[in-house]
């Protein structure tokens, strides 16, 4: 069988569906909102298929284990770096700050 992309799962055997409705968390809503704003006019930093391409290029293990919006935020980070909007250093520093702020002291 040919090598499939990690996202190319059409036709593979899988278990039963979970039809429960899900109320998105604030984090998920924000990720969604930012993604839409960044790729919509007037910014148009990237197109929605670039979003998919970035998600497909995640480490297969990360792709499999991550939640839906987790993949989105990881893709958003990659695209922000790729388009030169943010730098690795900026993100690393900010993450440190956020961690120190949110850790229970």
């Amino acid at each position: 069988m040919k090598n499939r992309l990690i996202s190319d799962i059409g036709g593979l055997p899988e278990g039963p569906l979970d039809l429960a409705e899900h109320e998105p968390t604030m984090t998920e809503r924000r990720i969604d909102a930012m993604m839409m704003l960044l790729r919509a006019k007037p910014r148009s930093f990237w197109a929605s298929d670039e979003n998919r391409r970035t998600i497909e290029n995640l480490e297969p293990d990360t792709y499999k284990k991550s939640e839906y919006y987790e993949r989105w935020v990881l893709a958003m980070k990659e695209l922000l770096l790729e388009k030169g909007i943010l730098t690795e250093a900026e993100i690393e520093n900010k993450l440190k700050e956020v961690r120190s702020r949110t850790e229970p002291s």
Binding site: T27, M34, V73, K77, I85, L86, E90, I91, L95, E97
Partner: peptide, 14 residues
């Protein structure tokens, strides 16, 4: 979660 903190970081930077 790490990815939730990443959301905060990216949002604040942007």
């Amino acid at each position: 979660e790490n990815w939730e903190l990443l959301e905060i970081a990216l949002r604040e930077l942007l």
